[in-house]
Nucleic acid binder design. Structure first.
Lengths: 211, 211
DNA sequence: CTAAAGTAACTGACCGGTCATTTATTAGCA
DNA sequence: TGCTAATAAATGACCGGTCAGTTACTTTAG
């Protein structure tokens, strides 16, 4: 007999880590850090639990890899901001919707939710997330605003607070989507929110034009 | 001999529940729902683990009690809004800082963080929180805005989106305080944020006065 | 044939919830 | 007033289940 059985599994040293990280992202997003079972992550990656530990030292290392996977999405935004030529309103009108789109596509919001929820138990994760993403994004925005103030486009006021006011509704919308929409709350159209908020915020921040 | 020993414990049926809820609030805020140990809550309340189960059916019931404990803080705000006479700007200038103060004093932010973090595992909690607090607050704000629009004070636009833009920075600030400040991020002055944001948001939302 | 990729059974710790037992308090009675 | 029985508050040892991480073994592939 012995019809050449297809092997029960294959050795795929190269692609395993990425597959495991993708699976981990999904399971962490769904369950949070503590409640995510390594065995479920392994199963979703089509691998046994033991195999996960061939590539990652422990569960936290796995989560760090997930954060590293999601973080680069910010860079698209940073690039966009850096090469922008026009005035402040044009920048905001381009950036906010782009941010809404990027965040909507990636699982950024889901990971953010996990970080927020587990920050006290795993401060290390909160620090990584803060340094790699949140702080950078806020500094970027505050810098753009300060420059616009220097050019006389934007009113006086704490640039960090302005930056907060600019992005918080979007972040809030993301968290809303991850937290309340699944339990039956009315969903938000992130993109529409971003567009209306961009206009409102600009109206609030810009100096009145000389008539 | 028998020098009257002070008893090892006392029977205090009346005050136990409140004490246990207070302890639970602290421990949940610090650890999240899943990672909070009932035994730690009991210890902090000065009671054995078994005693907790004399007053609460299970861990979730305990969390529901915590939510019920924190929720009424919103009612002060609602009352303030209901009895307000003046115009929309006055209302916003009163409400936002008051919200910042109330939220700052109570452990509202801490509980919110827990709800966000565990919403997928305990959707029941998310639903309770949404119905008892978030939805009510948002509906309240949207209603006030819609009325101001009807009076011609506020520009056209989705009232819910405006409401989001109005409160999101504060909520974000709360979450920031609970999540990133403990790991060394620069803290925010919530009250100052509320004040500056109130002015900016008003400038953005109000119709231009006829000159 | 050998190295390393992968498996699966196993271990040890942890924790929510239970329950038989102990102890404070109250009521009843002389 | 002092003694005792009855009651219910509170304890803490324990059980059952879960799960991160380990390890002895099997399978693939050069």
């Amino acid at each position: 007999m012995a019809v050449s059985q297809s092997p029960r599994w294959r050795r795929r040293k190269e692609e395993r880590p990425a597959e495991i990280v993708a699976a981990a992202l999904a399971v962490f997003a769904e369950k949070g850090f503590a409640a995510a079972r390594v065995e479920d992550i392994a199963a979703r990656a089509g691998v046994s639990k033991g195999a996960v530990y061939l590539y990652f030292a422990d569960k936290q290392a796995l989560f760090r890899a997930v954060v590293a996977e999601v973080a680069p999405n910010l860079e698209r935004i940073e690039a966009l901001a850096a090469q922008h030529q026009g005035d402040f309103p044009g920048l905001v009108r381009a950036l906010l919707p782009q941010l809404a789109r990027t965040a909507g596509e990636s699982r950024l919001g889901a990971v953010a939710k996990v970080v927020i929820g587990e920050s006290r138990n795993f401060p290390e994760l909160a620090r990584i997330w803060h340094d790699a993403l949140v702080s950078r994004a806020l500094t970027l925005a505050a810098g753009l605003i300060a420059r616009a103030q220097a050019r006389g486009e934007v009113r006086d006021g704490d640039p960090r607070a302005y930056a907060f006011g600019l992005v918080a509704p979007l972040v809030m919308g993301l968290i809303w989507r991850e937290t309340f929409t699944p339990v039956g709350a009315e969903p938000f159209d992130l993109l529409a929110l971003a567009r209306q908020h961009a206009e409102t915020a600009l109206e609030g921040m810009l100096k009145r034009r000389a008539a």
